[in-house]
Design a protein around this nucleic acid. Structure first.
Lengths: 156, 156
DNA sequence: GAAAAGTATCTCAGTAGTAAGAAAGCTGTA
DNA sequence: TACAGCTTTCTTACTACTGAGATACTTTTC
């Protein structure tokens, strides 16, 4: 079967999408690492900082990690004294993750830096271009996520 | 320090970029997995299919993996009988990775499917939008990659 | 009010890598 | 030619997860 122009375009888009994301992620990871955090740990702190205490399951869905992964991340942050677990009063299976005083102080201090790092990393586009890119990527992500389920089901 | 509109935009862009890439990658990984391959293994086969035999170092830079990682990937593909190592006649340190007959047959068969899967995954955008997105993501990736080095150096 | 089904978290073995450094070989300079 | 310094690959130890199942609890259905 001959490769169509549509397919060529899709391949190229997939490649540049991957490269752009890898480059931006490397930036973000370098900033997190400079404070002794992985990107996953940073994401947990950030989510708790902006949303307040969250059930582990809510946190897990928010930062796109497996159920085993969220246990692992929260364990480590608990070990570092940045997060603690709190029992849920209405459901004894569930636990909240909550920032400790130190965790709160840390993320409050480094989040603005993180935003600046990202701003620098993304400054290859003008603000108008960034807005365009957000719109396109959002459409792309939504379609791919929805379609992914059908395709995965079809393949199995 | 107050969060500026520029920073908000950058944060939002970073988030949708990550989500879009994760959704597309999940698609691609599901397709590769349906043929018993990881995405890294698929990428090696694809690179060899389109470029011919490559030195391990060339392959490593092409698919954005560490030096240890390329050894690991080629080891596994060699174990599956899809790739073999060939000594380089002009540099005795170096080895080529080369598709075996089976590797060649496999990637020739599944690459067109892969292109179709990607085309479906990316069909949330029109062709014109895809072209716009490619331009924007390319600019983004190049800036971030270049800037990443300075920032990493600055942080260390 | 008991059984069945569903949900939330945790445990554990395995995976796909990374990073640092060793080993072997190449190359440019004196 | 000798050798310092650079490349190229491989090895080893480690990391940040994933996925399957286990456990404990809750909700639904009869």
């Amino acid at each position: 079967m001959a490769r169509t122009a549509r397919e060529d375009l899709a391949l190229k888009l997939a490649v540049v999408l991957g490269k752009a994301q890898a480059a931006v992620q490397a930036h973000a990871a370098a900033h997190a690492a400079s404070h002794g955090l992985t990107l996953g740990e940073f994401a947990v702190l950030e989510a708790l900082y902006h949303k307040g205490d969250l059930l582990l399951g809510e946190l897990q869905r928010k930062i796109l990690v497996s159920t085993g992964g969220i246990t692992y991340l929260v364990d480590r942050l608990e070990g570092k004294g940045l997060v603690r677990r709190l029992d849920c009063p209405t459901d004894r299976r569930a636990r909240y993750a909550s920032l400790t005083r130190e965790g709160s102080a840390l993320i409050e201090r480094i989040f603005p830096e993180h935003a600046e790092w990202l701003e620098r990393a993304l400054a290859g586009l003008t603000l108008a271009e960034q807005r365009t890119a957000i719109g396109l990527l959002r459409a792309l992500g939504q379609h791919a996520e929805a379609g992914g389920r059908e395709a995965a089901a079809e393949a199995s």
